[in-house]
Every structure is written in structure tokens, then in C-alpha cells.
Nucleic acid binder design. Structure first.
Lengths: 114, 114
DNA sequence: GACACGTATCGACGTTCGTCGATATATTGA
DNA sequence: TCAATATATCGACGAACGTCGATACGTGTC
């Protein structure tokens, strides 16, 4: 209810000394955003597209009603994983790659990579 | 319902060409496992401990009833993120680091690191 | 074998979530 | 200004989830 806008900045690596209740909640919120098949596919579409995608191009392939897709987009935006851009009467969405990278870093124990 | 035992092996990077419905569901299932503050803190404990942890040491700090903790452990085991080991009448749990690493890799677009 | 103790399962409850039809809002074009 | 179209919001419904008390199962101890 408080800072859904950017939980990205307040979550910490899973192997950090001790997670505060707030950090745990923020981290969970982030993972929960990708805890639905529809949202996973949406993020997948945005990731492969590489450029902003019109929401109207997502309604069909997902097999979901228009309000449902809109609902999922709002969740992703609230989680800070996706950015919304208005172009005329169309809504374009793009992936916030640094946010997804943060998510990956959270799950990455000990930074084994590199 | 089908292969909850190891969704790890059947999920794919978010920027893969096109995610099948099964892959999307498996990926979502994996993220959902970390979509609860209690489970985030459990995984955090296991990650920092570095060695198997007795579930009896988790009941207190989490502030949850014993059946609830047991319930969360089962979810983590089902997701393939955690391993259970019986030592006498105690149950020890340890993090499956490769599984968590897979999770991180899924979220890691394009393998920018390295 | 009987008991104590740690853990898992069961059943129930309230809350949250995903979904959709109906409707409201906003932007474009005539 | 008015109609058409794209998107968001609202309200409702069923399903899934987190939580806990009561209870069953296993293991070690006497």
C-alpha cells in the first residue's frame, strides 16, 4: 500500500546478512509480479521485441479479455518492471531492463557470475 | 498438477524467442515460490547459513506457527528450490544453489553479465 | 511397550488473486 | 460537436493462498 511505485530500490540479495521484514516484503512483491503465466508471457514478449509494444498487439496472442490484459499491465507497472507510454490513443509498454536485471541480481547468490 | 517436482528444468530465459504455455506456467510457478515474504526470509536464512538448517530454528524468528512453516517448506521443496534431509527426528533443509542460479538466469536478459 | 517430542497433514477461515462483462474516460477524425 | 475506437476502471464471481488449531505420524528414550 505504501511504496509500490519502486520496490526495486529496496530489495536485497537473498544471501544478504539478514533481511528486514520490509525488504522481504518488497522482494516477495517483485517475485509475485512474475508469479502468473500471463505476466511471464507479457514480459517475454516485451523482452523479445526490444522496443515498446502496443497493448493492442498483446490482447490476441494471450487469449485474454482486454480488461484482464490491462489489469496485468498495471501490476507490472506497479512492480516497476515495465514502463507505460501514451502514443495518441494507443498505450505502449516497454521493459525496464535495469529493473529485471535487479531482479536477476537478487536471485543471484554470491555473484558467482564474473 | 503435472510436474511440480522439477519445474526448474523446463523454464526458459525471459528473452527466449517465444515461451510456450507450459514454459510460462513453469516459470511463473518458480517465481510464485518466492512470492511470499515468509518464503523469501526462509530462503534468505538458508542462503546465509551455507549449511543445512533445522526447521526448528526457523519457527521462532519467523513468528509463524509450526504448521505454517512446514507448509512453506513444502512449497519450496515442491518448487525444487530447497532440499529436505531427515536427521533423527529433526528435519534439515538446505538451499539448492543451482536451482536458485537457474532462477537468476531466467530473469537475466541476454546474459549481459560476462 | 509406553512415553515425549519434532514434524507433517487435515480442516476451516478470511483474504487475495485472476478473470470477465459492463461502463467510464480519453483521443482521433469527420 | 459528434461518432468511433483504444484503454482503464468498476463490480462480481470462483479459485487459490496464507494462516492456525487439532491431530496424526515417526523417531528416540526410558
Amino acid at each position: 500500500m505504501s511504496s509500490l511505485a519502486e520496490p526495486i530500490t529496496c530489495c536485497a540479495p537473498l544471501d544478504q546478512a539478514v533481511l528486514s521484514a520490509e525488504e522481504a516484503e518488497a522482494t516477495a512483491e517483485l517475485f509475485k509480479a512474475l508469479g502468473d503465466p500471463a505476466r511471464v508471457r507479457i514480459v517475454n514478449c516485451l523482452a523479445t521485441a526490444g522496443e515498446p509494444v502496443c497493448i493492442c498487439d498483446l490482447n490476441g496472442p494471450l487469449g485474454l479479455a482486454q480488461p484482464t490484459v490491462s489489469h496485468h499491465m498495471k501490476k507490472l507497472v506497479d512492480a516497476g518492471l515495465v514502463e507505460r507510454e501514451q502514443r495518441g490513443k494507443w498505450a505502449y509498454f516497454s521493459l525496464k531492463r535495469d529493473a529485471v536485471a535487479t531482479l536477476a541480481a537478487v536471485a543471484d547468490l554470491k555473484g558467482v557470475c564474473c
